[in-house]
């Protein structure tokens, strides 16, 4: 089984990202979208946690939500992949289920 986790909250608002990283299995995929995209940015106090997670999980960020918020790709933590809605759909197909951290 593989899981796609979706996170739509800024890690500075709620701990959805932190909880997801605690409870996601190795090899799982995580998509940051809506306000979740802020968790993908370099230099924040959660960046270290995200970098550590990248060693055994794949992390994606939704491009349209990044763009809307003025978050440039150059600001992303190395290793995070940008997808569009087509890519979002593909991720849900590639994984067996989706766990939304709402």
């Amino acid at each position: 089984m593989s899981t796609l986790h979706t996170i739509n909250k800024s890690p500075f608002d709620r701990a959805s990202l932190q909880s997801c990283l605690r409870l996601a299995a190795d090899g799982n995929a995580i998509l940051l979208f809506e306000d979740g995209v802020y968790g993908a940015m370099k230099g924040s106090t959660v960046a270290e946690l995200v970098e550590k997670a990248l060693s055994n999980k794949t992390i994606y960020v939704l491009g349209p939500d990044m763009k809307a918020r003025g978050v440039d790709e150059s600001k992303l933590i190395d290793g995070i992949k940008v997808v569009d809605y087509k890519g979002f759909v593909e991720l849900t197909v590639e994984n067996d289920k989706v766990n939304a951290w709402v």
Binding site: N8, E34, D35, P64, K86, F88, V89, V93
Partner: peptide, 19 residues
């Protein structure tokens, strides 16, 4: 909340991909 718009965009993309 953005949830409705996100769902709309997701549904559109899924339909475009033939799902």
């Amino acid at each position: 909340h953005e949830a409705s718009v996100s769902a709309l965009n997701f549904v559109k993309a899924a339909l475009e991909a033939g799902h």
